[in-house]
Design a binder for these strands. Sequence first.
DNA 1: GTAGACTCGGTATATGGTTATCGATATAAA
DNA 2: TTTATATCGATAACCATATACCGAGTCTAC
Lengths: 234, 234
Amino acid sequence: MVIDINLSTLQRLKRPEAPSIPQPSLARLPQYHHYLVDLADKGISRISCSVIGAYLGLIPVQVRKDLQYTGIIGKPKTGYSVAELIQAIETFLGWNNINEAFLVGVGNLGTALLGHERFSKFGLRIVAAFDTDSTKIGQWIHEKAVLPLEQLADLAQRMSIHLGIITCPAEAAQAVADEMVKGGIQAIWNFAPVKLRVPDHIIVHNEDLYSTLASLSWKLARRFRVPVQEKEAV
Amino acid sequence: MVIDINLSTLQRLKRPEAPSIPQPSLARLPQYHHYLVDLADKGISRISCSVIGAYLGLIPVQVRKDLQYTGIIGKPKTGYSVAELIQAIETFLGWNNINEAFLVGVGNLGTALLGHERFSKFGLRIVAAFDTDSTKIGQWIHEKAVLPLEQLADLAQRMSIHLGIITCPAEAAQAVADEMVKGGIQAIWNFAPVKLRVPDHIIVHNEDLYSTLASLSWKLARRFRVPVQEKEAV
DNA sequence: GTAGACTCGGTATATGGTTATCGATATAAA
DNA sequence: TTTATATCGATAACCATATACCGAGTCTAC
């Protein structure tokens, strides 16, 4: 059986033009951004890594390294310009160019995302929603039309939509992903707890609530359980 | 200014009894679990790391290492017992003992979580919801009562609730967290895009949509931008 | 104007997680 | 019964990320 070998090999081969920024740093940038916007609102114009780090519980060096990826240049003693920093992060993350997205699955979660106006500040605009439930189709939710899933592929192609958001039940997720791929969608933000099978060039990010839940319950169990050894000897 | 030094030092001091399992492994366990339950439903009773890995896009060694943390023991050639493996993961993650939780913020997202029946399979039961909006208080959403936030601390204490879920707007999140701490809650699952300030012994997990969004938009921007160098020389 | 303190940027080291390798063992086929 | 093969468990090498260190620059206070 060589399937596994092929798979892992593929994964590695896919990465030559791999991220020039570590994934964890990428994930921290929005946090810096959020804090910086707050500062800007307060009229503060310069900031140092130490202060940012103190606020977020990170050491100054790490903050500095993360920020360096955005290409920003600071000045000794004074630190960075807040405005420049915000700009640098937004540019780096591509938040200046809006990504238009389709969302599939207008349940509670889907509705929540559709109504999240703040996304537009972070380069995301959900332009339409899709569902298979005929009672939902035709409705308008948060000013977005709910269309039948069958139209997704065609519309995505014609409107050059690059991003798809999956908030449908797990059972339907793979079929939805297939439709998205057919419509030329490049990246999928997947909220369904399923491993999607898509071509290699498609970017998939899973928002896996169960992972978080696992961490939490493990830590809680650990805290309230009498401290026993985790592994039994054979 | 020594705040930062103290902070980072604290973080390290907090960790002596740190996770005996890497965070990424912990996050993968639910995925294995999900797949295994599917297998069990199909009547398959034994499984090898290679097959699990092939399904999830991981190499067999990694799967094996992850599973070892749960204390499971496999047999050469045959692999693991599916049933034992499921049991081992559930026990390890503490999914057998139900965690009762309070949820604060009955917006779309909060409602979505309240309605998510599957959580109960993963050791989570949301027993009540809270809000400050008087039009929501008194309602029942998915068979859970919506109570005024003021009652949270008292009820949490009397019912020995250990877990709090924050799905309210960012502005209110810190105040809610404070209430939770006052009520003796040990762990917080935070969906608000805010860095919460809580005592050291409180476990906080942020479900940060913006981090994911940042990754996605960076990768999309990178794909569609002409490949230029990321950093300008000084 | 000078001394001192703070902060940046670059390089080096340490840590933690992932991947590779090897020997042992159980099953299945000859 | 013997041989071949798939798989596990353990140890070791490797890689990515996080942390520490050091020199250089600039602002503040005296």
